[in-house]
Every structure is written in structure tokens, then in C-alpha cells.
Design a binder for these strands. Structure first.
Ligand SMILES: [Zn+2]
Ligand SMILES: [Zn+2]
Ligand SMILES: [Zn+2]
Ligand SMILES: [Zn+2]
Lengths: 157, 157
DNA sequence: TGTACCGGTGTTACACTATAACGGTTTTTT
DNA sequence: AAAAAACCGTTATAGTGTAACACCGGTACA
């Protein structure tokens, strides 16, 4: 078993996370316009998820406060290109924690502090994908989300 | 590999599904009030998911059309007691397909016809749950959802 | 016989999440 | 340069979910 200490729940050099995201964007030749850049920067601040309107409130460029579609457009682009993931259980968004090798992304989500640990789920959960494929199902996307309270939040409660 | 033909995507005696749900409710001594009963009946019609407002529109008792909280209260109760699952990717609800042995429920969801196949995603220890537990995380709930287009819908497209 | 409690219901109003549609501007492609 | 595509600003609206409060019926218990 590898990776028993999820990154998001432990101290780490977060600059590396941030740099990995920027690099991935560059390598893919993505076009990071001002809003996309700003949204991504916000999400890269830490491993917490943010709601679209929470992001929207913090968005601003030269004194201009944009409308909802602006935030949603940026998020849509970033999700499509794998730099951001949507956390379905929270209607929220989080920066991809491993943009250079992101496959079978599963998430461990704290209900209290909203930190999100991103883990590559292994073969066992992927049974579902096998069953889907065997029955002629064409899979478009898959999520595995575990929700609860992280160790830190348990202590402070 | 067992269960390679998901129930929802194949012909089957659906009366048995319906009966299993009713039996489970009875065995657990659940209190199925009129609205709970009506909502459950709606969801038990087949293995398709329904949105809360879709359910609400079809709800009616002696000519009385209830308000949103009525539907949400019934759904909350049924979900809490395991007779109904919430499909996060669709903001929708579906009757539990195996209420007598429902653990580690994963879902294969067709974007087109909204049929939902319910599969136990791992018989042994699921990796994500394992990692969560090892890091002191207290898991409250977990979902695994695979979304795409089922074989039937591919043909008719 | 009250009466205090509790779960369920009815109702209103509101909060949160997300998208449609249109027109204008900038960037890319031909 | 012209055409096409992508992006952005703006308005309005759709879709999903809750807070809050009053009321009603049963039941436990004084
Ligand atoms: Zn980090
Ligand atoms: Zn936490
Ligand atoms: Zn069935
Ligand atoms: Zn189930």
C-alpha cells in the first residue's frame, strides 16, 4: 500500500503542488485567460474546495466584479482540462493535486474544514468500471468520494 | 467476477425488486407515512432516478399537491433508512436495488435514460476507505459513481 | 383529565447552484 | 483581409434545497 498519508491532510511543501499545476497547464498548451488564471490561483491556495459563488465573490480584476457565468465558464474550462475537479457531494471545486499523473481520481473530503485529499483508487473499486464495460456501457466519467471528518477536525471538536 | 449483468440494464422480474423494498421497510419497523409511501412507490416503478421536483410534480394525495419540503422530508427519511439512494451526479434519487444486502453501493448511471445499476463496488476492503481509516479519518459516507451511456441508448442514438 | 412532549405535516418565504441567450470583442485560422 | 472560433459582459431565469413557524394528532405520564 502506497500513499497512506494523504497529502492534503499532512504538512507538505505546497509550492510544489502549485508549480505542478502551472507546469501541467503549460505542457498542455492551455490558454489561461485572466479569469481562468485567477480562478486557478484561488483554488491553488490550498487543498480546500470552494463553491462557485465563493470563488465568484473573491474574483476581481482591476476593480471589476464579474457575474456568475464568468466563474462557471472558467471552472468548466479548468475541469475539462483536468486542472480542477468537481466534488459532487459539496457542489464545489478543488484544484487537481496531481495534474501530471491524474487517473482514477478518488477523493477523501472533510465535511468540517473542506480539505480534499486526492487519491488514485486502485483495482478493487475499479470493478465497477469493468462491470460497466462488460455490459456494453460507455463510461464518460467516474467518481469515488469518501466524506467524513478528518483527524484534525475531530481533535478540535 | 460476479454480477456481470447489472439488473437495471437487463430484463428481470421487477416485482421482486419492489417486494424486497417493502419487506426491508417492514423488517426494520419503518414508519411509512402517506408521503413516504407515495415517494417510495414512485421510485420503485423502475430503476430510473428522479429529481426531487419531478417527484414533487407526481405527488398528490386526495387532490392535494404538496410543497417542496414535503418531498424533501420524505426523501431524507428514505435515504437515511437505506431505501433510497441519492445520485450525486444528477441531483436525483433512486430506489435501493438491494435493500436487504446494501453495502458499499456503487452506481452505473446512464446519462440518457437515467437508468441506474447498483453494484457493490468492492467485496473486501476498498482502498480509499482503507487509506481514509489509516489516516485517522472518520468516514461518514462514500459513493462511487460511473456515468455514461448504456448499451441500449447507444443503439438508439 | 389534563398536559407536556414528540414526530409529522402545511405553508411561506428564501438561499444556493447553475444556465440560456444575446451581443460585442478579441484571437485564430484560412 | 475575411471568416471562423473563442472569449467576455450582461440580463434574466431555471433548478435545487432549507429555514422557520404554526398546527395537529398521538402517547406518556402526572
Ligand atoms: Zn499541496
Ligand atoms: Zn477537516
Ligand atoms: Zn428491478
Ligand atoms: Zn442500495
Amino acid at each position: 500500500m502506497k500513499n497512506t498519508v494523504p497529502l492534503a491532510f499532512s504538512d507538505h511543501n505546497h509550492e510544489k503542488c502549485r508549480a505542478a499545476s502551472i507546469n501541467a497547464a503549460y505542457r498542455q498548451g492551455l490558454r489561461l485567460t485572466k479569469w481562468r488564471q485567477l480562478v486557478l490561483d484561488l483554488l491553488l491556495e490550498d487543498h480546500r474546495s470552494m463553491g462557485a459563488y465563493e470563488i465568484l465573490e473573491k474574483l476581481e480584476c482591476h476593480g471589476v466584479k464579474p457575474q456568475p457565468p464568468t466563474a462557471y465558464r472558467a471552472l468548466e474550462y479548468l475541469v475539462e482540462h483536468g486542472l480542477v475537479h468537481r466534488i459532487e457531494k459539496q457542489n464545489a471545486y478543488v484544484a487537481c493535486a496531481r495534474p501530471d499523473m491524474c487517473r482514477n481520481a478518488g477523493f477523501i473530503v472533510c465535511k468540517t474544514c473542506r480539505k480534499v485529499a486526492e487519491i488514485e483508487y486502485a483495482s478493487s473499486e475499479a470493478d465497477l468500471l469493468h462491470i460497466a464495460a462488460e455490459s456494453g456501457f460507455e463510461t464518460k466519467s467516474a467518481i469515488m468520494e469518501v466524506e467524513g471528518v478528518c483527524a484534525d477536525c475531530q481533535k478540535s471538536a
